[in-house]
Design a binder for these strands. Structure first.
Lengths: 171, 171
DNA sequence: AGATTTAGTGACGGGATGTCAGATACGTTC
DNA sequence: GAACGTATCTGACATCCCGTCACTAAATCT
């Protein structure tokens, strides 16, 4: 509000709370990510191509809204409700990713392992990596970040496809 | 201090600062992790076995000191100095892991990719996953967490070994 | 013009962090 | 055992941040 022509209390006319404000911001980013994830989750076309596309748009969205993600993640531990919201935000991806993994395991594309914990691990990797790379002012180069997380996702979920995939990822 | 027989100001006789206290706590946990990581980083014996052992002790240490890790990670964004300390803490692992990856790439054990970003991604995964699993009161089962991150590390770094490794990981 | 709704602000209360002068306990020296 | 110096501790204060509220100003309606 200090950078505004309005006073601090005016803020509270439009938002319940600092944490409520964070929720509002997060909701806007969420739709972008969910939309981008459809490419892989919808299960049309090949799995590897879909995953590659979904991760690419994920990195794009995170690159664009990095500071918001960092702000929410930073503020979450200070407020029980916001922490729950953030946990749910990540948890929702855990579930859909886990479901997709189970599908691919049934189809023989993916090795057999417990889908949920691995989905959780991969999603935490994305969150931590993207916030670290794009959260502050000087952002890391998008392509480097993308290759790294793409590498990990592909070799974990589609290792049989690795030989073909690796060339497309490049070094 | 409220749970103590001493008053609040007494705290400041022993610590500069709340954040200084966090640094002290973190230092104690760090030695445990570094010690456990030697199995893999020292490069004695086979790489897969070393990594497996290092990850096992990492999960042990995190399970033991989870709340400390969460407390530091939560407090870091609120203080520039502590945030730097936390960044350095994670960054130090990025570097040693990256060096080890480069070695294994030269030896043909690991596919060719940029070691540093992948190391960063894997380490952020560990941090996020371990804090989420062991940070709060009710801790997740150790073995589930361990299998998940082990799966990701092994399939990313030693995919050629995957067939043999997967059986030992189990589902 | 008068009334009613909307928009905005100064001033306050509450909670958390950190500081400081003074008090208390303890050991040392004569 | 009295005086002194030192280590330990605390009540009270200053500061900052969040959120609220009574009150004012502007805009819209009758």
């Amino acid at each position: 509000m200090a950078t505004t022509e309005y006073s601090r209390p005016t803020f509270y006319l439009y938002f319940n709370d600092l944490h409520g404000f964070m929720e509002t911001l997060l909701d806007e980013v969420k739709v972008g990510i969910v939309e981008g994830a459809r490419a892989w989750l919808s299960n049309e076309g090949d799995a590897v191509g879909g995953l590659r596309q979904s991760l690419t748009t994920l990195v794009d969205v995170a690159h664009q809204h990095g500071p918001i993600l960092k702000a929410v993640a930073d503020a979450a531990p200070g407020d029980a409700r916001l922490e729950r919201v953030w946990e749910m935000f990540l948890g929702s991806f855990d579930e859909v990713v886990s479901a997709r993994i189970a599908q691919d395991q049934a189809a023989g594309l993916t090795p057999d392992f417990e889908p949920l914990p691995v989905a959780r691990a991969l999603n935490r990797m994305d969150a931590g990596m993207l916030i670290q790379a794009f959260g502050s002012g000087e952002k890391a180069p998008k392509d480097v970040v993308l290759s790294a997380i793409m590498r990990v996702w592909l070799s974990t979920l589609y290792p049989f496809d690795a030989a073909a995939s690796i060339e497309q990822i490049g070094r």
